[in-house]
């Protein structure tokens, strides 16, 4: 059997070569990352109202890349935050998006509050700093920045399909969300990308309703429907359950459909044989 060790010499040689000859782009970034003057200049660029939008986007992108490894940039965090907060309301959509993205990735309270206010407002989608779907994704980086009530409102009345997907993705699994999520799962008109997330959210919260729906759907359409693999996976991941009989019946049904199912369905069937231990 081939192992990593077989490639060790080759890998070391490639690393050595790479270490000897950093490409010019990488060297440029390394130089920038260590330069107080150049980072200060970039931040000043962000603070200058005359800077063209394209240059602002480039500067934010460069700073975001450098922030991963620069020891100088954290010393300028206050100046950078001040400049970026000033760009949240930029007339250029991409500048706004980049500024909000940078700030929210670092848990900035001002950017979070700005996005939450817009999500709670009745502003038309086109007038928002970023689309609702992006705002949810940005706030979702910090679990304490977005709450269930706000997400439920969006899930019930999404401005577009992508927003529904993001709202569902970030909703917690509990009794308050289960009914809304089950409603979306059962609605064939909703996007599959959103429905597919739901079985593994609701399966251990309202296993009875979920199993009943999964069984009925699989009996009706077999393994052929697009949602079938996700239903099977949801059933396979049900942990300890009061309705064990109903769950076992559904599992039996799923196994019987395995031969006709897609690869994804068969993968879900294989999960039935590797149950997750119950959360005591």
């Amino acid at each position: 059997m081939t192992t990593v060790s077989d490639y060790k010499a080759q890998l070391l040689q490639r690393l050595q070569k790479a270490g000897d000859q950093p490409d010019s782009g990488a060297q440029e970034m390394l130089d920038l990352a260590g330069s107080e003057e150049r980072i200060t200049a970039l931040i000043k660029l962000l603070s200058n109202p005359a800077t063209p939008a394209a240059d602002l986007v480039n500067a934010i992108g460069t700073l975001a890349a450098v922030s991963i490894f620069s020891k100088v940039l954290p010393t300028q965090s206050a100046e950078l935050t001040n400049a970026l907060r000033g760009l949240i309301n930029s007339p250029d959509a991409e500048v706004r998006r980049q500024a909000l993205s940078y700030l929210t990735l670092r848990g900035d309270a001002v950017a979070q509050q700005h996005l939450r206010s817009e999500l709670q407002s009745s502003k038309p989608e086109a007038d928002k700093s970023v689309p609702t779907s992006q705002a949810i994704a940005m706030l979702g980086v910090d679990k304490k920045a977005i709450d269930k009530a706000l997400l439920l409102n969006i899930a019930k009345n999404p401005p577009d399909d992508e927003s529904l997907v993001q709202a569902v993705r970030h909703l917690p699994a509990d009794k308050d969300t289960a009914a809304v999520l089950m409603g979306i799962l059962q609605d064939d008109s909703k996007p599959l990308a959103a429905r597919a997330l739901i079985p593994d959210i609701v399966n251990n919260v309202d296993s009875s309703a979920f199993t009943a729906y999964a069984k009925q759907k699989l009996e009706q359409y077999g393994a052929a429907s697009e949602i079938a693999p996700f239903l099977a996976s949801g059933v396979a991941n049900i942990q300890s359950d009061k309705n064990q009989h109903q769950v076992e019946e559904t599992k039996t049904l799923i196994r019987s459909l395995a031969a006709e199912g897609s690869d994804a369905f068969q993968k879900a069937v294989s999960q039935l044989n590797n149950p997750i231990l119950p959360d005591k």
Binding site: G107, A109, Q112, Q113, R116, K144, A145, D147
Partner: peptide, 8 residues
């Protein structure tokens, strides 16, 4: 309140 709002 959100944690950041309460802190502010």
């Amino acid at each position: 309140r959100f944690a950041s709002s309460a802190a502010r």
